[in-house]
Design a protein around this nucleic acid. Sequence first.
DNA 1: CATACCCATAACCCTACGGTTATGAATAAA
DNA 2: TTTATTCATAACCGTAGGGTTATGGGTATG
Lengths: 107, 107
Amino acid sequence: MSTTPDLLFRTLADPTRRAIFERLCREGEQTVGALTVRSGVSQPAVSKHLGALKQAGLVRDRHEGRQTHYSAQPGALNPLIDWTSQMAGFWQNRLDALDDLLKRMDQ
Amino acid sequence: MSTTPDLLFRTLADPTRRAIFERLCREGEQTVGALTVRSGVSQPAVSKHLGALKQAGLVRDRHEGRQTHYSAQPGALNPLIDWTSQMAGFWQNRLDALDDLLKRMDQ
DNA sequence: CATACCCATAACCCTACGGTTATGAATAAA
DNA sequence: TTTATTCATAACCGTAGGGTTATGGGTATG
């Protein structure tokens, strides 16, 4: 039983937020300041996006002195993977059923 | 090169719309009227969602008399699958690099 | 022809939410 | 201790978009 992918889809729907998550996946742990550079938005905006990503379980934070390091938590993508393969599975099942039907009609 | 999953994420982010797509995947082709029943929203709302799904390539429509039949187009999920495995891949690469580093330090 | 049905579109409303600036708490540096 | 830095939160604004009702075009039915 996979948990609902609802929050995951909503969280990843925003391009800016998804870009931040992609950077964390590609480049590993980053501070808020580092993520703000070339994000195209202000530091508070980045903080809010990181908050949303954290609530969705997509990132972890680690405090060190006055800076906060964020890192991706890729296991959180599993419900998404489950959902897509489930959808593909339903499709395949109906294809198999159609195949069966055609075979029986063929006899 | 996978096409951008942006439109896909945005389209699937809405629960009502995603529920319609799920029904089409599970139960196969449906008319707008059939989809409206138990969708929890009005017929125009369903039509708008189907329009969005169609624009994202997630469904196809087929006109027959005065009714329109919609069916899921699961191949359209491929960019999503590509994106998730790419993210998982970046993660794995960085893990491998760390592993290498630890091995070299161990010598 | 008149009527009923199915769907799409238009016009509108309202909320969610992504952006901003302002500010403060916590920590490092002078 | 004073000053500077880093981040999070608050308060606010504007817009995108999902909901509704109203309506019309196209097709089947009486």
